[in-house]
Simulated assay, not measured.
Amino acid sequence: MAEAKLQIQMLHDRVLVRISPEDGERRSSGGIVIPATAQVAKRLAWGDVLGVGGHVRTVKVGDRVLFNPEDQLEVEVQAQTYIVMRERDIHAVATEETEHGTGLYL
């Protein structure tokens, strides 16, 4: 039997995010490899928005968002792990251009 594709519709103010793969191992400015399991301090993570609910106002599918992964709920769909969170738990949205001229450029 062939696998059916699931279509997931997020409800209310919920956002479905996939953690970016580059948030694993890091390198210090001196070239030292820091494993993903190293606990230095609480660290925010970047992720890609895959779905949004009907009451989400500032985030859209395809945006790159900054959030705290420790405070969120994980869900596994077809062997992939995703994060489900409320829109208010997102700290920042990365965009190509800034309209207001404030903030950081990554």
Rank of each mutant, 00 (worst) to 15 (best):
R43W: 07
V15A: 01
V33P: 03
T102Q: 10
T102R: 10
A94I: 10
W46N: 04
T98A: 13
L44C: 09
H100P: 02
E25I: 12
F67Y: 15
G30N: 10
G62K: 07
I19K: 08
M1Y: 08
E70N: 15
V52G: 00
L106W: 10
V84R: 00
T98L: 11
D13C: 08
G51C: 05
G101K: 04
L106K: 08
Q78W: 05
E96Y: 11
G47I: 00
A38H: 09
A94M: 13
E76S: 14
D23H: 08
V59P: 01
V61R: 13
A92S: 09
A4F: 09
S20F: 06
A45H: 09
R86T: 07
Q39H: 10
R26H: 07
A36D: 09
L50C: 07
I34D: 05
V52Q: 01
R43P: 01
A36L: 06
L16I: 04
T95W: 03
V84Y: 01
T95H: 11
G24R: 07
V56N: 03
D63L: 04
V59M: 05
E99D: 13
A45T: 13
E70C: 12
E74K: 15
G31N: 05
P21Q: 06
D13W: 02
L66P: 00
V17P: 00
V65W: 00
L6S: 08
R18L: 13
V61F: 05
T81A: 09
E74D: 14
I83A: 01
H100M: 12
S20D: 13
V75Q: 11
R26W: 04
I83P: 00
V17E: 00
V61P: 03
P69I: 04
A94P: 00
H55L: 15
E87Q: 07
L6C: 06
A4H: 10
L11V: 14
M10R: 02
I34K: 05
H100I: 10
I90C: 02
A4V: 13
L73M: 15
R64M: 08
V65K: 00
G47C: 03
Q72F: 05
V61Q: 14
G51W: 01
R27W: 10
P21S: 07
K42G: 12
V75T: 15
E74V: 08
G103E: 03
Q80M: 10
D48L: 14
V65T: 02
T95R: 13
S29Q: 11
K60F: 06
A38Q: 09
M10L: 14
V75F: 04
E22D: 12
L44Q: 10
H91M: 15
Q39A: 10
S20T: 11
E96R: 14
E25Q: 09
D89G: 02
F67E: 00
G47N: 02
H12W: 11
F67C: 01
G101C: 04
I90P: 00
D23K: 07
